[in-house]
Amino acid sequence: MIGVAYVQATIAIINANHYHLDMANNDITLASLKNGQSGTIRSIDATDPQVQRLMVLGLVEGTQVQQAGAALGGDPMEFRFFGSGISLRREQAMRFIMTRDSGD
């Protein structure tokens, strides 16, 4: 039990530290996807309870997301994933680090 817990705590810390923008690697956030572009979520800064809520709705690491529209001024934005649509604000979208899908 303790062993498992130790490994998990370590994973959690790694996860928490994993969140960073690697500019050299051409990383983008969800907020910077242009209309029609898609990407896959690579890491998430989950400290904001709003972001946790979005994760419960299915925006987790590995989810492929497509930008599908925006309101006047580009905020909030609309995204599609797995047959769902969701609208969220830029502020929260910035918390999702994406790997841009090839072909864009």
């Binding site: 039990m1 303790i2 498992v4 817990a5 130790y6 998990q8 705590a9 370590t10 994973i11 959690a12 810390i13 996860n15 928490a16 998430i44 989950a46 400290t47 309870p49 972001v51 946790q52 809520r53 994760m55 419960v56 299915g58 987790v60 690491e61 590995g62 989810t63």
Partner: peptide, 17 residues
């Protein structure tokens, strides 16, 4: 022990999805 520094709801979403 289960969650460490990770918000539990975030972990739940990650594991279940």
């Amino acid at each position: 022990e289960l969650f460490g520094l990770e918000p539990p709801l975030a972990r739940e979403a990650r594991v279940r999805y």
